[in-house]
Amino acid sequence: MKPISKLYSFLIFAFLYAPIAVMIFFSFNASNSTGLFTGFSLKWYGKLAHDQAVMQALSNTLILAVTSALIATVIGTAAAVGIDRWKKGIVRNSVMNVTNIPMMNPEIVTGVSMMLLFVFVGQLVGKKEILGFGTLLIAHVTFNLPYVVLSVLPKLRQTDPFLAQAAQDLGCTPVAAFFKAVLPAISPGIFTGLLMAFTLSLDDFIISYFTAGPGFQTLPITIFSMTKKRVKPDMYALSTLIFVGILVLLLAINLAQARSDKKKKRI
């Protein structure tokens, strides 16, 4: 790269990371200001561990992310396998169009539309407080699904269409053929989809904001209500921890991928 390109790239990355750097920096602030640094301290991290509301929200978020990602992965993978078998035509096209809706719609519209559905059903069954874990889970699975479908589909397209038939020819039942021959071939795509679903769900605020009820708060919603008031560095400490956690997760995945690539090369 030429020096001018390097400088440009550096400036863009500086822009992208400036607020993150500020956040990490002030999470170690001794005073409760997020603008004036008075001294180094770890007290906000300690405070965090004792914050009941935050810890509850954190565990809620993790439970929601894991379950919604798993459900979306199962339904989405099955869907991708099915879509792959449909030849070009009206079924395939309409399924693909439906897949694109949650990705293309503004999140706020997705959130609002689901809220309307839930509220309507709630009125129908005479249950006022319908919003909660169930509705959140449905919403999260819904916006996760397209990502799973779209990460599995390309992998299916790359695999030999006769793989399943070969397995059946060798004595597998159709179901066993799928699990023994097709599934291993598409597992990287499934894994990518699962991971994407997990992180999307972890991070989602807008859709959750409209589909969550007071009984079940996720971390982004808790953060939202906290940023309505003046934010104390404990929020920064929390975000720093999440950031580091995700960084470690991504590094581990990259490392694992690099290792399996190497293994493949050796073979």
């Binding site: 099955a78 869907a79 099915g82 078998r85 809706i101 949650p102 519209v109 689901m114 919403a139 799928f178």
Partner: peptide, 23 residues
């Protein structure tokens, strides 16, 4: 194989298409 798309289809009708109608 083709039929395994149906849970997804059902889900999408219930939670993607239907909400649009409610809007």
């Amino acid at each position: 194989y083709k039929a395994v798309v149906s849970p997804y289809l059902l889900w999408s009708i219930l939670f993607v298409i239907a909400p649009m109608f409610f809007v």
